[in-house]
Simulated assay, not measured.
Amino acid sequence: MTGTDNRCRLVLIVPEGEDIEARKAMVEDALRGGDVASVILPQYGLEDGLFQKHAEAIVPVIQQAGAAALIAGDTRVAGRAKADGIHIAGGLEAIGEAIEKFSPKLIVGAGGAKERHAALEIGDLAPDYIFFGKFDGDIKPEAHPKNLALAEWWASMIEVPCIVMGGTDPQSALAVAETGAEFAALCRAVFDEPANAAQVVASVNALLDEKAPRFED
């Protein structure tokens, strides 16, 4: 058991962008900073063909660093890029269909849970994780209080792991960890200054190593 297996781990959200090589380099640099459980690559506004090219360039970089590469968008892109999983935020029907079609071959994660009832309905489908927040929800230094409250409630009673979107301050990952959530997601906190991405990932891991609560076996 490694030191990160029993505490909240970091998940990275790749920011929006058109330049494939710049995004690839940005992700590669960030992953040099230390432990990252997974990296989610959202489609944003990219058309499927261009998104495919981005995925084929970035997915291998993620996997070579030992993290899981997850695609949020066209599931066909995930298959062609040989990603490890998909993130679905299109409602219960879409989540259920994805789980039926792709699990357990691929990780199938679910977003779109804005309140407890919706979260429980998603949880009943048994995705591999549930995501609280929006990929572009990091508009303040701290994580959104509503997402932290949802995570604390969820982690205390549901076995499906949760990922919670943090804020623009890297230290917001600790507030996520303190809810009992398994994963803290960061985007702008890591990628707003790409030259410092590895350093930020290293500092977040050091913070979580020192202060994050430990999970019971």
Rank of each mutant, 00 (worst) to 15 (best):
F131Y: 15
A81D: 03
D192W: 09
D48V: 05
I139L: 10
A189V: 14
A181G: 07
I107D: 04
A202H: 15
K101F: 06
K105F: 10
E56G: 02
D169M: 02
D5Y: 10
F131S: 05
G34L: 09
K134D: 04
I13P: 14
A118C: 04
A181W: 09
R76E: 06
I86C: 02
A67R: 10
G85L: 00
V11R: 12
A155R: 12
R23V: 04
S156E: 15
A68M: 01
R116V: 14
V190Q: 12
V176D: 08
A65F: 12
G180A: 14
K140L: 11
G85V: 00
D19Y: 04
L50A: 09
D74F: 00
K105D: 13
E115I: 08
G49H: 08
P213N: 14
I122H: 03
A22V: 05
I40A: 03
L150C: 09
C187K: 11
K82N: 04
Y129V: 00
G137F: 06
D169C: 07
G49L: 01
D124T: 11
D48H: 05
N6Y: 12
G96D: 12
I88W: 07
D48R: 12
E28K: 11
P60V: 00
K105N: 10
C162V: 09
L41N: 07
F135A: 07
G109R: 02
R214I: 05
A126D: 08
A89V: 06
G166S: 06
L92H: 10
F191H: 06
G109S: 11
V164Q: 05
K101T: 15
K146P: 00
V160W: 09
I130F: 03
P42V: 00
E56L: 03
G33W: 05
V164G: 06
L46T: 03
A83F: 04
A195H: 12
C187D: 13
K211F: 10
G112C: 11
G49T: 01
F183Q: 15
P145C: 06
Q171S: 14
P194K: 07
G73I: 02
P141S: 12
V61C: 03
P104I: 14
E21Q: 13
A197M: 12
I107Y: 11
L50S: 06
Q199Y: 07
A57P: 04
D35Y: 08
A119S: 12
V201A: 06
E178D: 09
L92D: 14
M165T: 13
D138S: 11
G90A: 09
P145H: 08
G49D: 07
L31G: 13
V14L: 09
N205E: 10
V39N: 14
D84E: 00
A69T: 04
Q64R: 15
M157T: 09
R214Q: 13
S203P: 09
T168F: 09
R7P: 01
V108E: 12
V59W: 02
A206Q: 15
H87K: 01
F132G: 05
I163T: 15
P141H: 05
V61P: 08
E216D: 10
R9I: 02
F191K: 08
G133A: 07
G166R: 04
L31M: 08
